[in-house]
Design a protein around this nucleic acid. Structure first.
Length: 580
RNA sequence: UGGGGAGUCGUCUAAUGGUAGGACAGCAGACUCUGGAUCUGUACGUGAGAGUUCGAUUCUUUCCUCCCCAGCCA
């Protein structure tokens, strides 16, 4: 593929950094921050994104990432990336690496502020000891079952543990021995001494340390006791001098405990926890447990399956970081549970891709078309615009010859009303090329159409006619002799229901969409796409946005359909069918 | 039935006592060498009642609905 401005035809869409958010609305968290800055409560802000490395990041995390990093950027503060790695049983280095990669890909930079809760294990231990010395924590020997029994219920208070009032020195000794590994998993725990009758169950003497003889991915065998989330999180925030600790709604009940620890410990810094509603999307499951199950039980190809709502899946599918960031701005931040229409995400995607994706032609379901009055063996190089939305994208040359492929869907022997494409006796334009007229249809013995015979008008070169003659349709095409054959993978929603959790048997997997993946081969694309690299994005004219997949080989390129173009004709046709 | 939250167009989200606005989706049209993009127009909403007020999405109150919490997960 030649190119008038020197860029390779198959170069990827431009980097996401060029794409500034289109909208920048306010929200209740910004209001709080603006107030804190105005009153002088804080001179600048510090936020954090605190993932547990026990799974891949998904679009819901992207909302939190955009929020936390976005706030820091907007108010000139900083945002930390902190791994909340307090449960070695579920965590893995693989997840740490994927999370770092995904946050970076989304366009955010934590600079030197990369932390791990496990970095604070020593301090956390000291704080726990301090709690015991203040008689605000004790070692408890109740079993798991007993603990549950003593906890009480939603409507009734709990009972105090028989160990609750053991001497401080005894708890100190026991805790020390827990640390030394003298007890088996589950034998003892360290508990905060708060109030077994609190209507808030989180305050009924919550566990702050448990025994786990499990190696940690970062601290190895150094510890066999690990701190719990509620204790770790607030202390980590305080250590890092976080000003606004933003989390999701389900932690609202934990806020009194967050505050209790920091108040009792009298930490210098006492961040304010603020909760917002997590993202839900139609046709999508977002829980880590379910996504992990889809991967583990091979309902999908992996965490980066292009149908997954994971960042890696979206990336592989062809989503751009800019589209995701704009989406996160567009949906806003509030406290009411909500489910965003997937169409909004697709809108952001198309908007972004439209501006930046190079236009090329590709035929999904090829139908052979012979131009009977075109000279045998002749080849013309025609000019084609790379992106009508971006003059600077330049033009390229595409080969034209006697035998072409067009899209099967672009021909109807018996065209319905309002079908503007090719049909017997009809004239249409081949994009960037000529007007052609269908003269005859060739079928095989089964009656299937195998070839079209057409004539072209040499006076319409480039796709224009000087005589004012209009054609209703414009078709994409590929010169058969120059076509690169490739595989195209089409995706649909992974689930058939807007809410996959709406089930009869209680299993969301019954709503899995059996038709969510389709592969087409051979498809034909322009010769310039031969060098396409994974994640290179294109618009296949009239069809949609596609990107090369990592499964591509030098012999066969694989394209993923990222998203279709808005298809007014398909909508119209569907409507006409419904009418019938 | 304990505690904590939330209810604004179909969906997401503004309006913080003064004209209920925007976006997506929908519908209709214009334009177009992509039935894309773009542009124009259009329909659609304050959970219910009572109260305060000249005036209530906003304040008070009663009710209704939905979500979260009884992991040694986060």
């Amino acid at each position: 593929m030649s190119n008038s401005n020197g860029t390779a035809g198959a170069s990827p869409a431009k980097p996401a950094a060029e794409n500034a958010p289109a909208v920048n609305p306010s929200n209740f968290i910004k209001d709080i921050i603006a107030e804190d800055l105005k009153t002088g409560k804080h001179a600048s802000i510090v936020t954090r994104f605190p993932p547990e490395p026990n799974g891949y990041l998904h679009i819901g995390h992207a909302k939190s990432i955009c929020l936390n990093f976005g706030l820091a950027k907007e108010y000139g503060g900083r945002c930390h990336l902190r791994f909340d790695d307090t449960n070695p049983c579920k965590e893995d280095i693989e997840y740490i690496e994927s999370i770092e990669r995904d946050v970076r890909w989304l366009g955010f930079d934590w600079k030197e502020n990369l932390y791990y809760a496990s970095d604070y294990y020593d301090k956390l231990y000291e704080y726990a000891v301090a709690l015991i010395k203040m008689d605000k924590a004790y070692v408890c020997e109740l079993s798991g079952d007993e603990m549950r029994e003593y906890r009480g219920t939603l409507t009734e208070g709990g009972k105090e543990s028989p160990h609750r009032n053991r001497p401080v020195a005894e708890s100190l000794d026991l805790f020390e021995r827990m640390k030394k590994g003298e007890f088996e998993d589950g034998k003892l725990v360290l508990r905060a001494k708060i109030d077994m009758n609190s209507p808030n169950i989180n305050m009924r003497d919550p566990i702050i340390y448990r025994i786990r003889h499990t190696a940690h991915h970062r601290t190895g065998d150094k510890w066999c006791i690990y701190p719990m989330y509620d204790f770790t999180h607030c202390v980590s925030d305080a250590i890092e001098k976080i000003t606004h600790s933003i989390c999701t709604l389900e932690f609202e009940d934990h806020r009194p405990l967050y505050d209790w620890f920091l108040d009792v410990l009298k930490t210098e810094c006492h961040p304010r926890q603020i909760e917002f509603a997590r993202l839900n999307l139609t046709y999508t499951v977002m829980s880590k447990r379910k996504l992990l199950e889809l991967v583990d039980k091979k309902y999908v190809g992996g965490w980066d399956d292009p149908r997954m709502p994971t960042i890696s899946g979206l990336r592989r599918r062809g989503y751009t970081p800019g589209a995701i960031r704009n989406f996160c701005e567009m949906i806003g931040v509030a406290k009411s549970n909500s489910t965003v229409d997937f169409a909004m995400l697709e809108y952001c995607l198309r908007e972004d891709l439209n501006k930046r994706a190079l236009r090329v032609m590709g035929v999904m379901k090829p139908l052979k078309l012979v131009i009977t009055n075109y000279p045998d063996g002749a080849v013309e190089e025609l000019d084609a615009q790379n992106n009508p939305e971006d003059e600077s994208a330049g033009t390229r040359k595409i080969p034209f010859s006697k035998v072409l492929y067009i899209e099967s869907d672009d021909f109807r022997e018996d065209p319905p009303n309002k079908f503007f494409r090719l049909a017997p006796g009809r004239e249409v334009r081949l994009k960037h090329a000529y007007y052609i007229k269908c003269e005859s249809v060739i079928k095989d013995e089964k009656g299937d159409i195998v070839e079209l015979r057409c004539t072209y008008d040499p006076a319409t070169k480039g796709g224009w006619s000087d005589d004012g003659r209009k054609v209703q349709g414009t078709l994409h095409w590929i010169s058969a002799a120059h076509a690169i054959s490739c595989e195209v993978r089409l995706y649909d929603q992974l689930f058939t229901k807007t809410n996959p959790d709406e089930t009869s048997a209680g299993d969301y997997k019954e709503n899995l969409n059996a038709g969510s993946f389709t592969s087409l081969y051979p498809c034909y694309v322009e010769p310039g796409l031969k060098t396409a690299k994974p994640e290179d994005r294109f618009q296949f004219l009239r069809q949609g946005y596609f990107c090369a997949d990592a499964d591509s080989t030098p012999e066969k390129i694989v394209f993923n359909r990222t998203v279709t173009l808005v298809d007014t004709w398909a909508k119209l046709e569907k409507k006409m069918q419904v009418k019938k």
